[in-house]
Simulated assay, not measured.
Amino acid sequence: MSYRSTIARQPQALADTHAAARAELAGMDLSQLDRPVIGVTGIGASFAAATVVAAELQSKGRRGFAIRSDDMVHGFDLCDALIGLSHRGRSVETVAALEKLPSAGRLAITNDPESPLAKAAHLHIRLANGSDATPSSTGYTATLLASGLVAQKLAGTADAFAGLPALAEEVLTTAGAKMERLGKLFENRRAIDCVGAGASLGTADGASLLIREASRIPAAAYDTRHYLHGPMESMDAATGVVIFGAGRELELAKHLQTIGVPVLLVTTAEDIADGELLTVIRVPKSGNLIAQGVIDIFSPQLLAAQLSDQAGLTDTKFRYRMSDTKVPQPEAA
């Protein structure tokens, strides 16, 4: 299935995952996760999702942290409970992270209950996003949604995700209307930075990976405040910046425009409008940081598809396939 078609399928993928994960969680005892320090881990886009999930746990008063899987394979005692994210459940590093923490409560979120990651965990939540493409679209957003249902059950809060399928349709339409303009402004960039704070740093990380994978433009992610302390110095009229947020990010977006840098700002703020080089995509505000992460990623997904098409790379397969990143599938008998 093509990248654009999987982006378009997200309202249904989110609805299906919400129903499946909610049903599983209804009868699940999460006491093994209800511990002082909760780690969230993954690799690639799943680590970007882990950053979003950890921020939501922190906002609810929990000591939740995104931990890189590679930091956990040495067996250090870094957390009391661990949530492992992997769409297919076969990422070597994430499986090893769960296996190296036998004393911690472990939950895996994948689309395969028979996957190596599911088997390395005490508990498993199944994604029901259907097919995905590369770069990941439905796999990433479904992972966030299922993680969000886990986080809200731990916090004892109301369901913030039931309305996401309808919001997805709305935001994809709103963002899609800006893509022709963004395609012209971001064409032939030599680099694109993606910037956000807190949970939005995870969204920025996910966006930078989408741009790299879909359009092969060098892209990187930065925390908003860190970005102001030097990294933005190399940006100019040959580059672009994608920003997520409604605080200091507004001034940053305006400043970058004044020095000639094309900017996409994904924001809940009402008091900022498009400029000559600034394109604003206004999105609904959610009180849940994970739900907001789902809402915010739709715009960079569409931007990556737009830039991919313009570069003649529509649905081009990855050039670099490493042999040691996935647990091998067992051979059929």
Score class of each variant (00 low, 15 high):
Tyr3Lys: 09
Arg4Met: 09
Ser5Ile: 11
Thr6Gln: 12
Arg9Gly: 07
Pro11Val: 11
Gln12Tyr: 03
Asp16Ser: 08
Ala19Gln: 15
Ala23Tyr: 02
Glu24Cys: 02
Ala26Glu: 12
Leu30Trp: 04
Val37Arg: 14
Gly39Asn: 05
Ala45Phe: 12
Ala49Asp: 07
Val52Gln: 10
Val53Asn: 03
Gly64Thr: 09
Asp70Pro: 00
Asp71Lys: 02
Met72Tyr: 01
Phe76Met: 10
Asp80Thr: 13
Ala81Thr: 15
Leu82Lys: 02
Ile83Leu: 08
Leu85Thr: 02
Ser86Thr: 12
His87Glu: 01
Val92Gln: 13
Glu99Asn: 09
Arg106Thr: 07
Ile109Gly: 01
Pro113Leu: 06
Glu114Pro: 05
Glu114Ile: 03
Glu114Ser: 06
Ser115Asp: 02
Ala120Ser: 13
His124Val: 10
Ala128Asn: 08
Asp132Ala: 11
Ala133Lys: 12
Thr134Met: 10
Pro135Ala: 02
Thr138His: 08
Ala142Ile: 12
Gly148Ser: 07
Gly148Pro: 06
Leu149Lys: 03
Val150Pro: 00
Lys153Gly: 07
Ala155Glu: 04
Gly156His: 13
Gly156Phe: 10
Ala160Ile: 04
Ala166Cys: 06
Ala168Cys: 13
Gly176Gln: 04
Met179Glu: 04
Arg181Cys: 02
Leu182Ile: 15
Lys184Gln: 15
Glu187Arg: 12
Arg189Asn: 06
Ala191Met: 12
Asp193Cys: 00
Val195Lys: 07
Ala197Gly: 01
Gly198Trp: 00
Ala199Leu: 08
Gly202Asp: 11
Asp205Ser: 15
Asp205Val: 11
Gly206Leu: 11
Ala214Tyr: 10
Arg216Phe: 00
Ala219Asn: 12
Ala220Cys: 06
Ala221His: 07
Asp223Met: 05
Arg225Gly: 00
His226Val: 15
Pro231Thr: 06
Gly247Asn: 14
Gly247Leu: 03
Arg248Gln: 04
Ala253Asp: 03
Leu256Asp: 05
Pro262Leu: 01
Leu265Ala: 07
Gly275Pro: 13
Leu277Gln: 14
Pro284Asp: 02
Gln292His: 06
Gln292Pro: 10
Gly293Asn: 11
Ser299Arg: 03
Leu302Asp: 00
Ala305Leu: 06
Ala311Tyr: 05
Thr316Arg: 14
Arg321Pro: 09
Thr325Ser: 10
Thr325Ile: 14
Pro328Phe: 05
Gln329Lys: 10
Glu331Met: 03
Ala332Lys: 15
